[in-house]
């Protein structure tokens, strides 16, 4: 085993442990902030796995999009929403738990089956490596054009939805043409200004 292979193996082990441990932590920890930060760790270690697969561009994109944008937005959501709610125990909560467990076990079985059935032959193709950016770009604008554009439309919809949700309706202080209502004025009597006629000034 050469040095490179050894480094790869050790890195793979560490990254796998980080991914799995982080993912378990995201699900099992009580503190939601810890979960969010661990999610960032999971994303980062997945980027590391991409690097091991010679996909540098995908790894950088993973860090930029998932760690730098998605995870930060999740954290923003957690930190800005500060709504404390009473914990009310739900009756028959076990039904939900059992259902979740069933779904999880089913998914796990499905994935295991597919993992076992896939022929994991290592392809003889030379990895694109540094040229991956170009190849990805070509794919995006030829055979994967529709999914690519659909994804951008989806993002646009999300963007507009966020604007609609965040935008406050503009409420003008005074409607045009309508005199200012007296309800907002102070209940003081209007003062007479001291007349400026000479001779009527006090002290003369």
């Amino acid at each position: 085993m050469t040095l490179a292979e050894g480094v790869q193996l050790v890195a793979f082990g560490i990254l796998t442990a980080m991914t799995l441990g982080g993912a378990l932590g995201v699900v099992l920890l009580d503190n939601i902030v810890y979960s969010a930060f661990l999610l960032g760790g999971v994303f980062t270690s997945m980027a590391g796995l991409y690097i091991l697969l010679n996909a540098g561009f995908v790894a950088a994109a993973q860090v930029l999009v998932y760690v730098g944008a998605v995870n930060v937005l999740i954290l923003f959501g957690i930190m800005l929403v500060n709504k404390e709610q009473e914990f009310t125990p739900i009756k028959q909560a076990w039904v939900g738990k059992v259902a979740t467990g069933g779904v999880c076990v089913g998914l796990f079985a499905l994935l295991t089956a597919s993992v076992l059935n896939t022929p994991w032959a290592i392809s003889a193709e030379v990895p694109t490596g540094e040229m991956a950016t170009v190849v990805i770009g070509i794919h995006f604008f030829t055979d994967y054009l529709l999914p690519f554009e659909l994804a951008s439309v989806l993002l646009l919809i999300a963007l507009i939805g966020a604007i609609v949700l965040a935008r406050r309706e503009f409420i003008p202080d005074v409607a045009p043409g309508e005199p200012a209502s007296e309800a907002l004025q102070l209940p003081e009597r209007p003062r007479e200004l001291v007349s400026s006629v000479p001779g009527s000034e006090p002290g003369r």
Binding site: A60, A61, V63, L64, V67, G68, L75
Partner: peptide, 12 residues
């Protein structure tokens, strides 16, 4: 691109 990606970690 790596630099842009890495600098986006700092906010975390």
């Amino acid at each position: 691109f790596l630099w842009i990606a890495l600098s986006s970690i700092a906010p975390i």
